[in-house]
Design a protein around this nucleic acid. Structure first.
Lengths: 139, 139
DNA sequence: ATAATTGCAAACACTTTGCACCTGT
DNA sequence: ACAGGTGCAAAGTGTTTGCAATTAT
């Protein structure tokens, strides 16, 4: 008793959306990109449905969600072999690329900030903004 | 010749908005908070005007702007004696507090990420999400 | 059968724009 | 005078909700 059971029918739309996200591996997409993708496949899925599935998947920890600086958001499949909890992300403001930062420094930062500044960082939601090497070099 | 001059009349609204932001010191506000503040002062300022001033102030480096995870944004005066370029920010997801993280470690991070991962972090736009000590302790 | 899912249209929240009027220079 | 600023109302985004029809179990 107590914890709400979200129910879970296996529907075609749900399978398609999850399958698409999983097929992207590390890449992230926005809601409109998902909608457009299926429209092109001649299997249009309503955006309401996409939003609802993404919310469920996000709540169940199946996908990540990153807030973009323009107000929107992007989503990304959680690969079992590469949990994003263990690294930060770098977002290039020029080309929009989202880079996974695989580095021990991260743990150090979290530890330091927790011990010295009394704050528990959530790596999953934290995104470093800046410019990637390719864009600094000028393409 | 060339660079567009944004022009700059000194208007009552502009002075009031900047004055309010400056009076907040480190604290940050949203557009609606600004609008409400002046409404209470019986000097209502249109939200369009607020948005336009904030954009100018942001472009001129007078204030900072942080994207919030709920899609909105908040703004904060740049204190001359405490340039935010030199530190990161911690945003508590529970109480919403925005904390200034004054710490040498940050410079280290920026250097490391630049040298080892070929990415130039923009500290101004980067916000660490997590839970602050007070909220961990439970109020 | 019946409870969940779907997706259109409408509602929302935040932000931007068009435009007639007002203000600073 | 006239370029810039103001603010209402309208238009744009991205996201959520109401609800009748559809689908999974």
């Amino acid at each position: 008793m107590g914890v709400k059971r979200p129910a879970n029918y296996s529907t075609q739309q749900g399978r398609l959306i999850l399958g698409y996200l999983a097929s992207l591996e590390d890449r992230h997409v926005t809601v409109s990109q998902i909608v457009q993708y299926f429209r092109k496949q001649k299997i249009p899925i309503g955006q309401t449905t996409v939003y609802r599935h993404l919310e469920k998947l996000y709540n169940s920890g199946t996908i990540h969600r990153y807030a973009l600086s323009d107000g929107g958001a992007c989503y990304q499949y959680v690969r079992d072999d590469r949990p994003c909890q263990e690294h930060f992300h770098l977002k290039c403001e020029k080309c929009g690329d989202l880079i996974h930062l695989e580095c021990d420094l991260l743990e150090e930062i979290q530890n330091h900030v927790y011990k010295k500044h009394d704050f528990q960082i959530d790596a999953l939601k934290t995104v470093f903004y800046g410019i990637c090497g390719r864009c600094i070099a000028g393409r």
